[in-house]
């Protein structure tokens, strides 16, 4: 493949990676909680898109918005589990608890749906489009476009709406936000809900272009971490940038490295950034409280 088509492919995949990571980023930004079950929520998004497609023939691009309220509810529920943990212990405890939730979600999916690989084949799944000499499948194109639009909308939501501003204020400084009259608990819960909705939406855009199986989430969680680390910020823009970097790096790596080594790129990027910015994982405000 040509270098340019590798890059273009990587950029389109990168947008989807960005969407997967955005939810993780916003939850971390506001609550300092690393949600280990994020990838499994993406998996749930994929399965719900698959079911609605199989049973009712609804396109994932439509159904993902229909199921969004359920994901909001799920997010709020998970938040309810985490909220009462004392702040001092919360960082580590929530890490381990969400790891447990990840196990619960993945194994439940296994029991309900079995380990079979499922696919969502849309009427236009086989059609391709030519962009600057690169052939791209219709679903991949649509998924990437939707990802980009969703991230931009979410960014607008954060900067333009009242709730969005409250979320940002809480992310910057909980105590001051509370003093300014922000209901920190409600905002945290809403943020968690929103983060989980974004993961669900990411599942929706992934369903037509990826296999659906119970443990698929573990593929995404590592990528999402890598994106967040690369983006280096608790911002949507950072996630988009991180996603694009990862997408391109993977595409190039896949072409030039042996197949089995391709996946190492994600980890090398992840560890590399961690290593050179030891306190700066998600923007380096770790020490500030």
């Amino acid at each position: 493949m040509l270098l340019s088509s590798l890059v273009i492919n990587g950029l389109f995949t990168g947008l989807i990676y960005g969407l997967i990571a955005v939810g993780l980023t916003v939850i971390f930004g506001v609550m300092r909680i690393i949600n280990m079950s994020h990838g499994d929520i993406v998996m749930l998004g994929m399965y719900s898109a698959w079911i609605l497609f199989e049973k009712f023939g609804v396109s994932p691009y439509v159904s993902m918005f229909l199921t969004a309220p359920l994901f909001f509810l799920l997010g709020s529920l998970i938040y309810e589990i985490l909220d009462p943990i004392p702040l001092k212990r919360r960082e580590m405890s929530s890490l381990i608890i969400t790891l447990g939730i990840s196990f619960v979600l993945a194994t439940s999916a296994m029991l309900i749906f079995t380990a079979d690989y499922r696919t969502v084949t849309l009427p236009y799944s086989q059609r391709v489009i030519d962009i600057l000499g690169t052939r791209l499948g219709y679903p991949a194109l649509i998924s990437s476009a939707i990802s980009l639009v969703l991230m931009c909308l979410f960014r607008l939501f954060l900067s333009r709406t009242h709730i969005g501003r409250a979320i940002r204020a809480t992310a910057i400084d909980r105590t001051s936000a509370a003093l300014l009259g922000v209901n920190v608990k409600r905002i945290s819960q809403a943020t968690f809900g929103a983060g989980v909705v974004l993961a669900g939406l990411a599942g929706g855009v992934l369903a037509p272009i990826y296999y659906v199986y119970p443990f698929v989430g573990s593929n995404f969680i590592i990528k999402a971490f890598a994106v967040v680390v690369l983006g280096g910020m608790e911002s949507v823009t950072g996630a988009i940038a991180g996603g694009l970097i990862l997408g391109v790096a993977e595409a190039l790596g896949g072409a030039f490295l042996e197949h089995s080594l391709k996946d190492i790129i994600v980890f090398v990027l992840f560890l590399g950034v961690l290593f050179f910015r030891p306190t700066g994982l998600f923007g380096g405000r770790e020490r500030n409280r």
Partner: peptide
């Protein structure tokens, strides 16, 4: 590598390192 990191970051880096070990063995 990992001891430069604290708390959750340490945990994540060990997760990644274990995966790297697996991929090296695979490759």
């Amino acid at each position: 590598i990992a001891f430069r990191l604290r708390g959750p970051y340490f945990a994540l880096s060990t997760l990644a390192l274990a995966e790297v070990a697996r991929l090296v063995v695979e490759g």
